[in-house]
Design a protein around this nucleic acid. Structure first.
Lengths: 201, 201
DNA sequence: GTCTATATCGGGATAGAC
DNA sequence: GTCTATCCCGATATAGAC
């Protein structure tokens, strides 16, 4: 069962890396979680680093091109694109609610490890077409004039930050993780409405 | 020079923890950064854990009550409060641009360590007065009706996320850290304007 | 208070039996 | 392919001289 074991390992690694971060994760714990032993981990992945990269790119490769396509589409106005982007991005975040904080964490710790791999894969999102379109539609008076960089950053922030700040939120707002996920489910529509309101001319 | 050495250590620790995270940080590197040796670290702080907590609370204790006061003030309307909050919060973030990602990272890794200490200090921010006020002013028609939770989360997200997502942003938008900080400086006013626009009735 | 030297241990990685 | 046993480095923490 080579393929199964490998996938079991990947799933276990995803969970442990997510909870503990790269440096905090233990190969032993990943092995336990997968129901195997450390030796076998190194049989499938030659190092902790290789295992981490495998986990990361499994998600990244699936999501990045799709989001890129949404923002680069022709013949779709920006408000529609923003709606599609928020829907899809939040969907991914909800499906992997603990992973993004891990990625953020690793990027801050050792930006080169992930970033050089991302560059190698050549699948870096390209926001330029979307930024240009924002300016165009603003000049046409379809939306309020605003700094496109700041807006792009804000859309991602509104979606992603709650997931990285989840432990604090759960503390301050006194809620369980289940409540948090429901709040995020409702948040999709809230963000779309809020951005749309903010862009009214 | 006991006091000086202690502060030098705290500053060095802040920098190294910030760059590497708790698990990734090395006591040796902190000692090097401070221009002393490992033994002396343990003279002032009995463990790595104690050192980390000291660094965290130096910042947290200074900022948390102040932000709390802004949001709880009487006789100030919500839009003004939001402006003050954004200004002050962004100021702190700009002053410690690498620290929040570290805190987020640690909270996700081991929520209990920091959270139990925060509870012990008794200085947890209390958003309830602000949330109530949001609903009141919405009913009075001063601002658009909206989910107060979602709005509160969004204000914090708009300020904080760029700092945790900085490495990715610098990659995608192809900028240096200096450019990033200037972008954040301008962002203060942008956020205030955007939230205000989004809350127009 | 500050240093050097060292005890101790945890964890990534490897060797080799089955 | 999967397991056990072990190597060995690196990092926290301590002991003790100055």
């Amino acid at each position: 069962m080579e393929k199964d074991t490998k996938n079991i390992i990947l799933a276990a690694a995803k969970e442990v890396f997510t909870k503990k971060g790269f440096a905090g994760a233990r190969m032993q714990e990943i092995a336990d979680q997968a129901g195997i032993n450390k030796g076998l981990l190194h049989y499938y992945f030659k190092s902790k680093n290789a295992l981490f990269n495998a986990v990361f790119f499994e998600i990244f490769d699936a999501v990045s091109p799709e989001l890129n396509d949404i923002l680069s589409a022709k013949d779709t106005d920006v408000l529609t694109k923003i709606g599609q982007f928020v829907d899809r991005y939040m969907e991914v975040l909800l499906k992997n609610p603990f992973f993004i904080s891990h990625v953020v964490c690793e990027l801050n710790r050792d930006p080169n490890r992930l970033i050089s791999s991302m560059l190698k894969g050549g699948k870096i999102p390209n926001p330029v077409p979307f930024l240009v379109q924002l300016q165009q539609e603003a000049q046409e008076g379809k939306i309020k004039e605003t700094d496109p960089f700041q807006l792009m950053i804000s859309i991602v922030s509104l979606c992603a930050f709650p997931f990285v700040g989840r432990p604090v939120m759960e503390l301050i707002l006194d809620m369980e993780t289940q409540d948090f996920l429901e709040l995020m489910e409702r948040r999709k529509d809230w963000i779309k409405q809020f951005v749309q309101d903010g862009l009214r001319p």
